[in-house]
Amino acid sequence: MTSCHIAEEHIQKVAIFGGTHGNELTGVFLVKHWLENGAEIQRTGLEVKPFITNPRAVKKCTRYIDCDLNRIFDLENLGKKMSEDLPYEVRRAQEINHLFGPKDSEDSYDIIFDLHNTTSNMGCTLILEDSRNNFLIQMFHYIKTSLAPLPCYVYLIEHPSLKYATTRSIAKYPVGIEVGPQPQGVLRADILDQMRKMIKHALDFIHHFNEGKEFPPCAIEVYKIIEKVDYPRDENGEIAAIIHPNLQDQDWKPLHPGDPMFLTLDGKTIPLGGDCTVYPVFVNEAAYYEKKEAFAKTTKLTLNAKSIRCCLH
């Protein structure tokens, strides 16, 4: 018999989150649709729960009410004593943790798909938090293969000092899905179709896995975050240069030392320094102006996964 890495157990509980950011409308629209008619997301033997994560922000069509829901799922915020004085999103995070967690427990949901849009030209993107997770690498390989020839990129946010504390991190297997470009507060049919297909293929993978299909060893190309880059700023902290036209919409493309990065209003080009080629992502993302992030630098690498098969009882 072929030796293989056996994944822990079959997958039982899956959640699909929309509206973690209330103005990213593809996930909101799909989740609302699936709450009314969820036939397309159901798979035999699998509990799939669509869920609106930040209903107040969705109602106002804004990213958040008090603070970013997708950055506060750490033990400090989840452990705060519940009171009306807490920011709305912290209270909501505790409610979500109660419903789908608790985080880092045996009772937490197996998989959470968190649906997002970006204003950046990132196409279909899967966000991975753990480079050693054979199950998710296999799932992402399946999704990428199923979507081809449509490109699907994998963004690895594993980093020693950049801690995200994402909404989906309460699950055993957290999956971020990011599709763009799409303006905030807008629905685009092409973007919706791409996100819908990503979810379909992900659920198909889980179904095949649960039925005992063995997935042979595989490898995927990923883009691992190195650092986030702020806009150049003046002495008052105001933005002093904008994304250069040569960099705009060039997510995932190589940016070499000396290539144009920013452009000042008086026409001066600010190039990339250093001696390493990087791959920019979230270029000129609207939501990241407040976070002082013009783009993120990534490096390209390959992740390998062992063969996996479900432990059938």
Rank of each mutant, 00 (worst) to 15 (best):
S83G: 10
Y164T: 15
I191K: 06
N117Y: 02
T298Q: 02
Q12H: 11
K291Y: 09
L150K: 14
V283D: 01
F100A: 06
T166M: 07
P260V: 03
S169R: 14
T20P: 03
Y142F: 09
E40D: 09
G176W: 10
I143D: 00
E221Y: 03
F17A: 06
I270M: 07
L128G: 02
A93S: 09
P55C: 08
C61D: 10
A296L: 09
L147E: 00
C4A: 07
N37F: 15
D66K: 10
I52H: 03
Y153T: 07
K268E: 13
C4D: 10
H141S: 08
E9G: 11
D85T: 11
K228V: 08
S120N: 01
L46A: 05
H141V: 02
M198S: 10
D190I: 05
H21E: 05
M195H: 05
A286S: 09
T298Y: 01
C311R: 10
T118R: 11
G185R: 05
T298F: 03
L162E: 11
Y155P: 00
H201Y: 14
Y279M: 03
K32G: 10
L78N: 10
L30E: 03
L147F: 05
G212F: 04
A286P: 08
E290M: 15
D107M: 15
T145Y: 12
F140W: 00
I137V: 11
P245N: 04
K172Q: 15
H5P: 11
L255P: 02
G101E: 06
L69D: 08
T277R: 05
E8Y: 09
G273V: 10
H313M: 05
G45I: 03
V281K: 02
L263E: 14
F135W: 05
A287N: 14
N121W: 03
A296N: 09
S161D: 09
Y142R: 02
R43T: 04
C218V: 15
F29L: 07
P151Q: 09
K144I: 11
G267F: 06
K224L: 02
E235M: 15
K197T: 15
D204P: 01
K268D: 09
A219F: 07
V229G: 01
C218N: 04
G267K: 08
L126M: 12
I72D: 08
K291G: 15
L78D: 07
Q182T: 12
D249L: 00
H256I: 13
L303S: 00
N246T: 15
H208S: 12
N37T: 09
F295Q: 00
F100Y: 11
F282A: 07
Y64A: 08
L136G: 02
N54H: 10
D66H: 10
H159C: 06
G273T: 13
Q194V: 11
W252L: 11
H208N: 07
V281N: 04
F205E: 00
S120F: 01
E293T: 15
G38P: 10
D114E: 09
A39W: 14
P160L: 11
M122F: 02
L86P: 08
N23Q: 05
T118P: 04
R91M: 11
Y279A: 03
I270G: 02
H141F: 04
G212I: 03
N284G: 14
G27P: 06
D110G: 05
D130Y: 03
F51P: 01
S108E: 13
L78A: 14
L192E: 02
L30V: 03
H313F: 07
H10F: 11
Q250D: 05
Q138S: 04
L156G: 02
P183L: 00
M195W: 02
D275P: 14
E293W: 14
Y109A: 08
T145M: 11
F51E: 06
N236D: 11
E178C: 09
E89P: 05
H141I: 02
W34P: 01
N117E: 12
P183R: 02
H5D: 11
I16Q: 02
A219W: 15
L303Y: 03
A39I: 11
Y153P: 09
I137W: 01
T119H: 00
K268W: 05
R309D: 04
L150I: 13
E84V: 15
L272F: 10
K144S: 12
N284Q: 01
P254M: 05
V229I: 09
L115E: 01
I226S: 13
D251F: 01
A305F: 01
M139G: 00
D249F: 02
Y153I: 04
L115W: 00
I177Y: 00
P245E: 05
L78G: 12
Y289I: 10
E106S: 13
T302N: 07
K103L: 10
R92S: 13
N134I: 05
V154I: 15
D66S: 09
E238A: 08
E129N: 11
I72Q: 15
Y231S: 01
T277K: 15
D130I: 02
K81G: 09
C67W: 08
I143S: 00
K213T: 09
N246C: 12
F295E: 00
E95C: 07
P216C: 04
N284W: 01
Q138L: 00
E178P: 03
A219S: 15
R233I: 14
F135R: 00
N23V: 02
H313I: 12
S120E: 01
F262K: 01
N133M: 04
I112E: 01
A15C: 06
L86V: 09
N23M: 04
D130V: 02
N121A: 13
P174G: 15
I41C: 06
L312F: 11
I177C: 05
L136V: 08
K228I: 15
R233T: 11
D266V: 04
K81P: 06
